[in-house]
Design a protein around this nucleic acid. Structure first.
Length: 789
DNA sequence: CTCGATTGAGTTTTT
DNA sequence: CTCAATCGAG
């Protein structure tokens, strides 16, 4: 429709982006031939922009209609972001071009909304839905706890019970701490992970099963589960992708695939072998324009089957299967962070020679900050323990917000950190490996406050708020306990309906806590208290539950409606943003439990269904929460309120940026504790790496050039903190326990020295931050490359 | 230096 | 509850 030259001019004039100013971005958008374009893009280098501009270029320059474009990403959040950018920029470009009379008709044929921008799973689901085989119905996807429940309800339970010893022995290899699973729930989690892995890595099940009787039992569990899924037309994510691949291979999707004229894949470093096979099949079949974007240094989904090797060896692997050549472009100009920050994370990977062999070869050059040195050093706050750290951090933030500036003293050189006019807590984020506020101790039943919990209190005491809906397990939040307890009181007044589901002791404990919380609430007679209030409402439900005839009551009642009625008595659920997230998690659990339950989460009034529908609800919807199997998904919040500081895990922060980022590098590392070494300086391969190695001999296509298990475990930790350190725009602050910076006499294994990848240690146990001492005596000085406050 | 008592630790992520 | 690091006594 227009030339590439005109396109670049259009982008400059309408979107204000000068592609000639950045050679990598220009080449990324202009590249045109049959070779696959591989963009290796460092953090903050504008890869999303290039991806969208390249996609729009396919429409305007290469005359591909949006419906023939496919853009895949790794998370729903990223897909949403891409779609927004695509629509914003696309609409602007199209409306400008519409002014040109000659182009108007062609432009009017373009419907931007028809472009498919989604995760690969959701594209697979669409493809299978749009191309049902004769007599087939649309696939239903069971996610998270629902698919776990299905596994438990099909083959897992019988096979596990009959082979407990042999399976426990095998599972011990993959549990945390290398102990036998401490209950069925943990065994189920391991089995689920193995099953997913077997599918995602396209493992040869026959040879895998032959390794040992225990492995054969795992294969049996998987087979039973898959048969059940097939008979009910249910899918989990792995099975969905596998079905998609099978349909691609038997050519029953051929017409659909030939509709793909351009394929753009984001976050390729997190792709797994099954997804790779899908992509290669599409590429071979319809020979589209292909763009692959990723960063080997930011790969962090090994636990999900993501293999960075698929990215670093992409050119060879792709050529071997599809015959296509690959052209590579590196993007290392960073538009996000200050020079100080970029320098800090560059040295984070440069300082560890052991990291180099895992990177793409040849490695991309070091990231260069386009913003330059801005004068704010990296900040570090280290205190004696979590409580003091939480207090110090909260009061530092309070000062900064109240005065809009804060004085910092850098070795006698004083300078001010200023907050912009509209700066607020919403511009800050605290990243940590774990954001859990309290830990339920399964040995003594206590809830122990952790750093995030102390921090919440410290903030609240100063009138500041945080946003951390994932910080507490649903089952321990008091208003959630009230709600779930009310449900129990309404549906099971005599405590008779939980036994059949064999709850664990832990679950029983929480069920009784909930009942107690609900009883207390009823006794407080909360508003609205007219017509007998909450007490009368619950009493009515209890009568129906016990079979007392009640003509006014409908024959069946959706459990969700009962929930929405009950929350009117619980104030938190009315307007608090964290409560909205929790409520969503509860309703999601209820509706997905409906998939596995014959009652579909309806509560019946009479006959045998009166008891059974209630039992089913308690077993399938409430027990998973009591057993802590339900995850909170805060992505449903369109935006976090501006007056709250967000807490996130590093994984969740991937792809995001914030003006000020606080990274917890060890708030609770008071000593060189063996049980936390995996968080900072592993001694043993992680269990996920072990699983990879056990499966490796049974892969269809060999995967990795040999790299030792312990090195891969270190690599993951290095990448994790690389991602964390590359999030901030202007200020990066590291927080931790004082003892992390100590370096006394003695060997590194003892004397309170705490080696930590996040704090600049190399895996050979050297520490570049440690200054060699001059003169005769230790102690040795440690000079962190940051300003300690 | 050795032994036994005391103390403090004990996962995270997504489709 | 279990494991490992540290501490204090002998």
């Amino acid at each position: 429709m227009i030339t590439i030259h005109d396109y670049k001019t259009l982008v400059r004039e309408v979107l204000g982006r000068d592609l000639e100013a950045n050679l990598a971005q220009r080449d990324g958008v202009s590249h045109q031939d049959d070779d696959i374009l591989m963009i290796v893009a460092g953090p903050g280098s504008g890869k999303t922009s290039v991806l969208v501009l390249r996609a729009l270029r396919h429409v305007l320059v290469d005359d591909i209609l949006p419906e023939h474009l496919f853009i895949t990403t790794f998370t729903r959040k990223a897909a949403k972001e891409l779609r927004t950018r695509w629509l914003d920029w696309g609409t602007l470009l199209l409306s400008t071009l519409r002014n040109n009379r000659n182009l108007r008709d062609a432009i009017n044929r373009i419907d931007l909304n028809r472009c498919r921008i989604d995760t690969l799973d959701s594209l697979a689901q669409q493809a299978l839905t749009e191309n049902k085989m004769p007599g087939e119905v649309a696939p239903i996807v069971a996610e998270g706890s629902a698919s776990k429940l299905l596994l438990k309800r099909t083959s897992f339970s019988t096979i596990y019970d009959a082979n407990k010893d042999v399976l426990d022995h095998l599972f011990t290899r993959y549990t945390f701490e290398g102990k036998p699973p401490w209950n069925r729930g943990e065994a189920l989690a391991v089995a689920k992970m193995l099953c997913e892995r077997l599918i995602q890595d396209r493992v040869n099940l026959e040879s895998f099963g032959q390794m040992s009787p225990a492995y054969q039992k795992v294969v049996d569990i998987l087979e039973g589960y898959r048969n059940y899924l097939q008979s009910t037309n249910l899918f989990d994510f792995a099975v969905l992708e596998l079905r998609f691949l099978e349909r691609l291979q038997d050519e029953s999707l051929k017409e659909w695939v030939n509709g793909i004229k351009a394929l753009l894949i984001d976050e390729y470093q997190d792709t797994n072998p099954l997804q790779e096979a899908i992509y290669f099949n599409i590429i071979s079949t319809s020979s589209p324009f292909v763009t692959v974007v990723g960063d080997d240094d930011q790969s962090m989904y090994r636990f999900r089957g993501g293999s960075v090797e698929l990215f670093t060896q992409f050119a060879n692997r792709c050529a071997a299967v599809t015959g296509k050549r690959t052209k590579r472009i590196d993007m290392v100009a960073n538009y996000r962070s200050s020079g100080e920050i970029v320098n800090f994370y560059n040295s984070h990977i440069r300082g560890d020679a052991g990291f180099i062999p895992t990177r793409i070869s040849p490695a991309k050059p070091e990231v260069v900050s386009e913003r330059g040195v801005l004068g704010t050093p990296i900040l570090g706050m280290f205190r004696e323990n979590t409580v003091e750290l939480a207090e110090s951090l909260a009061s530092w933030l309070q000062q900064l917000l109240a005065n809009r500036r804060i004085l910092l003293n850098n070795n006698g050189e004083r300078f001010e950190l200023c907050l912009s006019h509209e700066g607020a807590l919403g511009d800050f984020v605290l990243l940590a490996h774990s954001i859990e506020e309290a830990k339920y101790n399964r040995f003594n039943g206590n809830a122990e406050q952790r750093f995030a919990g102390h921090f919440r209190s410290a903030m609240i005491n100063r009138g500041l708020q945080i946003f951390n809906p994932r910080g507490r397990s649903l089952r321990t939040i008091s208003s959630v306990q009230q709600l779930l307890g009310l449900l129990l009181l309404c549906l099971d007044p005599e405590h008779t309906r939980t036994g059949a589901a064999y709850p664990t002791n832990e679950a029983k404990f929480f069920l009784s806590e909930w009942r107690a919380a609900a009883t207390t609430l009823i006794n407080q007679n909360p508003t609205p208290s007219d017509n007998g209030g909450l007490g009368r409402f619950v009493a009515q439900w209890q009568e129906v539950a016990l079979g007392v005839p009640n003509g006014n009551f409908p024959e069946d009642w959706p459990a969700l409606e009962l929930i929405f009625k009950l929350i009117t008595w619980i104030p938190g659920f009315q307007n608090d943003p964290e409560h909205q997230v929790w409520l969503e998690a509860i309703t999601r659990t209820v509706s997905s439990a409906g998939m596995a339950s014959p009652y579909g989460m309806q509560i019946f009034k009479s006959g045998v269904h009166r008891d059974r529908s209630r039992e089913s609800f308690i077993r399938d919807a409430l027990l998973p929460i009591a057993e802590n199997e339900v995850d909170v998904d805060e992505d449903i919040m369109p935006s976090v309120p501006r007056n709250r500081l967000q807490l996130m895990t590093i994984h969740q922060a991937k792809g995001l940026e914030f003006p000020l980022v606080i990274v917890d590098v060890g708030s609770h590392f008071t000593g060189n504790w063996a049980k936390q070494r995996f968080l900072r300086f592993p001694e043993e391969p992680s269990n996920i790496v072990k699983m990879e190695d056990d499966i490796e001999p049974h892969l269809g296509t060999p995967l990795r050039s040999y790299r030792s298990p312990i090195d891969r475990t270190f690599d993951d930790l290095t990448r994790l903190y690389y991602v964390a350190y590359s999030r901030p725009q202007s200020v990066l602050m590291l927080i931790g326990c004082e003892s992390c910076l100590a370096y006394g006499r003695g060997k590194a294994q003892d004397k309170g020295i705490i080696p930590s990848i996040a704090l600049g240690w190399a895996r050979d146990r050297t520490w570049p931050w440690r200054q060699p001492f001059r003169g005769r005596r230790p102690p040795v000085r440690v000079e962190p490359p940051m300003l300690l406050i």
